Simulated scan of single mutants.
Amino acid sequence: MSKTARLYKIEALIRQRGHVSFAQLIDTLEVSPATLKRDLEYLRDQLGAPIEYDRYLNGYRFADAGVPVAANDGSASERRHELPGLWFSERELHALLMAQQLLSSLDDEGLIGRHLQPLLSRIEELLGPGGQSDARQLMKRVKIVGALRRPVPSECFQRAGEALTRRRRLHIRYLTRTRGNDVSEREVSPQRLVHYRNTWYMDAWCHSRDRLLRFALDAVQQASVLTTRAKDVAMKQVEAEMDAGYGIYAGATTRQAVLRFSAQAAPWISREEWHPQQQGRELPDGGWELSLPYTDETELVMDILRHGEQVQVVSPAALKQTVLKRLKAATAVYA
């Protein structure tokens, strides 16, 4: 165990147990008494840790433990010494391990995982010798299943991320599926990356269209970072234009859909969030009415069809006719 890891471990042990004896520290850290004495002196003298030896408890404790201090809002809180740099409790470290698993599951070619590996190693160090095996077991006990995933080439993802963080424009060769798989050359200014339903999207200012557009990264055939500074768009504008409607589709005109779900589906639908601005109410027959905004009906229609006979479109009439047309077409396949 490195010296840095030992210092964090000493603080963690005292924080968790209240006080720790010299013998317990030696057994846990697996170091010599001389090394432990140097570590304790370094924590006190160089890092300002208020560690003191309590003869009554026969162990080391924090001198400021439980001392109330005034918070900014006037309330009292407990004074807490923390080492500079990465500091987490054991519970927070385990939560980070699960978050690392989640991020890795979003990464088809291991790009994110490679960058997170140093953090993962650091977490295992902080957990100590016993915690390292616990961490590896935890990684095996967290499984994330991604269905219908559309993988994004790591090179494309990396260049999009580079352009986004460095605030540079990006030249892309883009495949537009809605226009008969038309391929076009675009110069864009990335504003944010969005992960939605197992694939990545990029919200960017398209300089050829002179407006905000959403690009599926798996449809980017080639990408190169330019030296030209990116156009900055206020995040409020990005959110207003790109997040107003249902799903991943963006548009200028927002319409309101009203859906009526059966009493059988109501217990589940009433707990689902289809859109941040949705509204719902319970119906007299035990059903559930859901009202939500949308700009493009494509994805909304697909999700309505997914619920089959458990849902009915109340309004608007155009959305109702589209769903009816799709249902008739589906029935004709089996006729």
Rank of each mutant, 00 (worst) to 15 (best):
R169V: 03
V194D: 12
R179T: 13
V152F: 05
T199W: 07
G146E: 10
H171E: 15
I172P: 07
D218G: 05
P151V: 09
R136Y: 06
N181T: 10
D203Y: 08
W205L: 00
R136N: 12
R173V: 11
N198A: 12
L138D: 12
F215I: 10
A204M: 02
L212N: 04
R214V: 08
P190C: 01
P190N: 02
V188F: 03
Q158N: 10
R167G: 00
R192S: 07
M202S: 06
L193S: 11
R136L: 08
R177F: 13
E162Q: 14
R197N: 13
E187F: 04
E162R: 05
Q191V: 10
R149F: 04
N181Q: 11
T165M: 09
I144F: 14
R167L: 08
S189K: 04
S189G: 09
Y196P: 01
P153L: 01
A160C: 15
T178P: 00
T199H: 10
I144L: 14
Q191L: 13
P151L: 11
R177K: 14
K140W: 07
R209P: 07
A160I: 15
D210K: 07
H171L: 07
L212R: 08
S208E: 02
A216Y: 01
R197G: 08
V145T: 04
V183H: 08
P151R: 15
C206I: 01
